[in-house]
Amino acid sequence: MKKNMVLEKSFSFSINIIHLYKYLIEEHKEYVLAKQVLRSGTSVGANIRESQNAESKKDFIHKLAISQKECDESIYWLELLVATNYISTEKFNTLFNEASQLHKLLKSIILSAKKGL
């Protein structure tokens, strides 16, 4: 069976976001920002998974575009968390790099799919 890199990367990112969420609520008692990053971070993979069952090429592109937006939103929350010292620069860099790679990959897939329309 062929590996789907974007599915694998988004699943891994979701797991890391869930660990970040647990850390934020357990260690910092920070619930609002934690919930925001949890929602956007796990939504990336959920929308990618949903795109695999798209009804059309346009629907596929739409689902991935939502995923790309959620990825960008996740980056925003991560930037906010590091700027307010809720997470270390090291933790930020790890998650930021992961999200940035996903964002670039999604952009590439979307552009390729649009060319095929």
Rank of each mutant, 00 (worst) to 15 (best):
M1N: 04
K2Y: 11
K2A: 15
K3N: 11
N4H: 05
N4F: 09
E8W: 09
S10P: 01
S10A: 14
S12L: 11
S14R: 10
I17A: 08
L20W: 02
K22T: 14
Y23A: 04
I25E: 00
E26C: 09
E26F: 10
K29W: 01
E30Q: 14
V32Y: 07
L33T: 11
L33I: 12
A34F: 06
Q36K: 08
Q36Y: 03
L38Q: 06
S43K: 01
V44N: 08
V44A: 06
G45K: 03
I48K: 02
R49T: 01
R49C: 09
E50S: 03
S51M: 07
N53W: 05
S56T: 09
D59A: 10
F60G: 03
I61C: 09
H62M: 09
K63M: 04
L64E: 02
A65Q: 04
S67P: 04
S67A: 12
S67H: 01
K69Q: 10
E70P: 06
I75L: 10
L78A: 08
L78N: 01
A83L: 12
A83N: 11
N85F: 03
S88E: 08
T89N: 15
E90S: 14
K91G: 13
K91E: 15
E98A: 10
E98Y: 05
E98I: 05
K104S: 14
I110F: 07
L111E: 12
K114P: 06
K115M: 12
